[in-house]
Design a protein around this nucleic acid. Structure first.
Lengths: 212, 212
DNA sequence: GCTACAAATATACTAAGTACATAAATAGAT
DNA sequence: ATCTATTTATGTACTTAGTATATTTGTAGC
């Protein structure tokens, strides 16, 4: 979050931010598929190759903070209370994110345009699914790490898959509720209810494994 | 499965099959991304536009039977014993598919090249994820239909998401086991063990809903 | 054989992404 | 302050998937 020391890095970051900002605005205005990379380069006042230099794929300009999400999950599991199961730890993380009004679980008019932009593009939906799988991999590795087990343990993979499925359904459903009822409170309630329900099931599935 | 009556349809189907066969062989030989549509057209001895006429996207030539999978799930849930829960119905379907040596749950050298081709291409992995979501949607709709509930019910979506996550992890894990141990029997055992474990958790999560 | 229609094909185009070469800016040393 | 090495930005040319549109060819029904 802090500004890098040398000018070179600062300028590089500024260029990147400029591209990201220009791209995001255009995507929100006209939809991801109706914006060309040439237009983004034009709007950001940089060369076309510079765009691809910072963002290998067009969709990376939209999802430019996916590493943050991975970190949140890793941190939560790394610093977990040994007396609390990983699944319960992530359930509590969901409640904490809501309580702290984290932007990750914000259900508002602004977050709606984000979701609607994704839903309007097959490319963005594909990337969102890929990120979901990447997050499941992070959780799976964190689970085996925490339990002193080799990575790739089938039970860890199952737990991680079920967890991300739960979060994914809860997240999307909360956004649907907000869209229908225009109520952030109801969306959050629905989100947590689904997280709790899913977590309960996962704990049951994992009974007897080192991840309980 | 039966041959259509008129010559026109037969020829159309033959053309389609020819393209699909040529494409599949090339994909297996060199990997999906290393085969161009022009080469496929050449190999199938048709024009390039004919290829896109039958398969809107390149990846549709690889996954050309995804509708079958949807049908299997729909049928299983439609014809289920009312005394048996949907989750249990699908758990039994998994066991039946294995018992009947269904090609959907075949773990062999042949199925390995299929999986390896997918894993070697981001495009194919993306399509596989999309199909997973489509299957979840099918299950979700079947669940609400069967329970006389409006589609889009959050609990149904959660159950469907958890189910597909379970099947997906079980499927991939079974293929990993086969790759490591070269044993179809061990792969199948691992597959069913994960299906059973996941199903157990889903039943627990859904306790109290109409889907139990 | 004539007409209607559907399938196959040709041509021309758009846009993402890659390969490769070059120019400009900056850091670090003298 | 200037030279040098390195990083960043950029230009040019290319590949490939996918689309739009028109045209040809083959088949069905009369």
């Amino acid at each position: 979050m802090s500004t890098p020391p040398d000018r070179r890095s600062r300028k590089r970051l500024a260029t990147r931010q400029g591209i990201s900002n220009a791209a995001t605005q255009l995507f929100f205005e006209r939809g991801f598929d109706r914006v060309t990379v040439d237009e983004i380069a034009e709007a950001a006042d940089v060369g076309r190759m510079t765009v691809f230099n910072h963002f290998p794929r067009k969709e990376d300009m939209f999802f430019d903070r996916d590493e943050e999400g991975r970190e949140v999950l890793r941190d939560a599991l790394r610093q977990r209370d040994p007396g609390v199961s990983p699944v319960e730890t992530l359930r509590r993380l969901a409640h904490r994110l809501i309580a702290e009004r984290s932007p990750y679980v914000e259900f508002s008019a602004r977050s709606q345009s984000f979701i609607r932009t994704i839903e309007g593009s097959e490319v963005l939906k594909a990337r969102a699914r890929a990120i979901r799988d990447e997050l499941a991999e992070v959780v799976s590795v964190a689970l085996t790490d925490g339990a002193g087990r080799p990575p790739g343990d089938p039970d860890a993979r199952l737990a991680a898959g079920l967890l991300l499925a739960t979060w994914s359904v809860a997240f999307l459903q909360a956004h649907r509720i907000f869209r229908q009822k225009r109520s952030s409170a109801e969306a959050k309630t629905a989100f947590l209810a689904l997280i709790d329900k899913g977590s309960l099931g996962i704990e049951a599935a994992m009974a007897g494994t080192p991840y309980t």
